[in-house]
Amino acid sequence: MTRRQLDIFNRQDQAAIDKTAERVRKTEATWPLRFTVNGKPVEVAVDPEESLYDTLRERLRLTGTKGACLEGECGSCTVLLDGKPVTACLVMAPQVAGRKVTTIEGLAADDRLHAVQESFIAAGAVQCGYCTPGLIVSAAALLEENPQPTADQVREALEGNLCRCTGYTKIIDAVLDASSSGTEDKANAGVD
């Protein structure tokens, strides 16, 4: 195409493409969904046949939730649904109506990292980082339920989260580290 042809193409066709794309996107999003994400109520129109993974990433642009397989095998998309870890890729969006979802973006409070986030950095548990959000969400859920897990309990809680880089060893270290520091924090809070 010549520059001139391109200009014509741009002016006429770009507007048409935008219009089509906008219309098609609206046609798909027919289901009004209300739920709570990271403590904030949201209302968003979704495709009832999409997964929570798509709702979070595409519609709410919370892209910290990753997805390596989208078939429930890798755990990269782990989020908390009413406090329990689930793979967001297997939850249909309408199923979360009225429920509470916590994503990796919701773990740090007031610019202070969650203990597991801190310990992942310190222990060298992060390499490529793609599995990291899912692992941290799973580990945070474990420590919520069991503040002082054994190494085997850490393994059991994280068995649904694949990591291809680290060899898991420093991940186990990181979660155990976070568990003891978490306990110290609570002890200090008690004194205060």
Binding site: E71, G72, L90, Q95
Partner: peptide, 27 residues
């Protein structure tokens, strides 16, 4: 019927399962 979705949703993603109507039992 849709309950946990752990098989059904995978089936849909893989193109193994066609669903015309979902009956979501989560409520």
């Amino acid at each position: 019927l849709l309950a946990g979705g752990t098989d059904l949703v995978v089936g849909i993603r893989k193109g193994r399962t066609q669903v015309s109507n979902f009956i979501d039992l989560s409520k």
